[in-house]
């Protein structure tokens, strides 16, 4: 019902038409019209006088009512046309918006201009920023992940957080087979096997992942290489099989 043509086009047209008719015929019905016409300036007062139903102006008044009817109908038609054209523009705008959203399918359904940057950065709330002065929001994801990393303040340095400064080549690599019979790459550190878990692009993300795993009760470490960090998780049970990674004898 909210979007029906009756509500959006016909009803405003009827209201505008009625209002126009009422305004035009008010002098004929009102007792105060004579007093009002006296106070009006010259052309308007004559016009109001002519509309009054008096014996002198009877013929003219009938014609005036016809004029009022025609005018109100014209107002109604004009209003309907204006509303229809406005709705057309709105529909075109909506279809364009739909196309944009379809094209940018990997974006969330939120307009960046709707984002309250003051909320994201409370210290900026006091001074509203202009459109061009929007801050680059730096977020601390540790406050959002499950079991916050910040709750473990003692693990402040990478080494304490399980980040090893050594590379993969510094450790013995194995292929281990766990209880699920599936094989995977593993690192041997101090007599324990660490199963490959995930690559991380930088130290912050590696550290956060290691801490997150530690909070889940898993012992994790990360090694560094030229493309980032590799996170490894300790095998809780000794593997059924551990085959050393082959000698890397062939290099060019």
């Amino acid at each position: 019902m909210d979007n029906s043509p009756f509500r959006r086009i016909v009803l405003p047209a009827l209201l505008a038409s009625s209002a126009g008719f009422a305004a035009l015929t008010w002098p004929m019905a009102s007792d105060q019209a004579v007093q009002v016409s006296d106070r009006l300036p010259e052309p308007l007062s004559l016009w109001v006088d002519s509309a009054l139903i008096t014996h002198q102006h009877k013929e003219f008044s009938i014609r005036y009512i016809g004029f009022a009817i025609m005018s109100s109908v014209a107002i109604g038609i004009g209003t309907a046309e204006a509303m229809r054209s406005r709705q057309g523009r709105s529909q075109r705008h909506q279809s364009l918006l739909d196309e944009v959203l379809k094209a940018a399918g990997d974006r969330p359904l939120v307009d960046p201009s709707d984002i309250d940057y003051a909320v994201a950065k409370p210290e900026a709330a006091a001074t509203p920023l202009a459109e061009t002065e929007r801050p680059t929001v730096t977020l601390d994801w540790s406050s959002l992940v499950q079991g916050t990393a910040q709750s473990n303040p003692q693990a402040s340095t990478p080494a304490e957080a399980g980040i090893l400064s050594t590379t993969l080549e510094d450790h013995a690599l194995y292929h281990i087979q766990g209880a699920n019979q599936q094989q995977c790459l593993a690192l041997a550190v101090e007599g324990e096997y660490y199963r490959y878990y995930r690559n991380r692009p930088d130290v912050d993300k590696a550290q956060r992942l290691v801490q997150q795993l530690q909070l889940q009760g898993k012992k994790a470490i990360a090694t560094v290489d030229d493309s980032g960090y590799i996170v490894w998780v300790r095998e809780s049970e000794p593997p059924q099989q551990a085959v050393p990674w082959p000698e890397l004898a062939i290099a060019h």
Binding site: I115, Y117, L139
Partner: peptide
């Protein structure tokens, strides 16, 4: 906010 800024890594959120 982060998504609009281009962040796509929400590991563990």
């Amino acid at each position: 906010t982060a998504f609009v800024e281009g962040e796509r890594d929400f590991t563990g959120i």
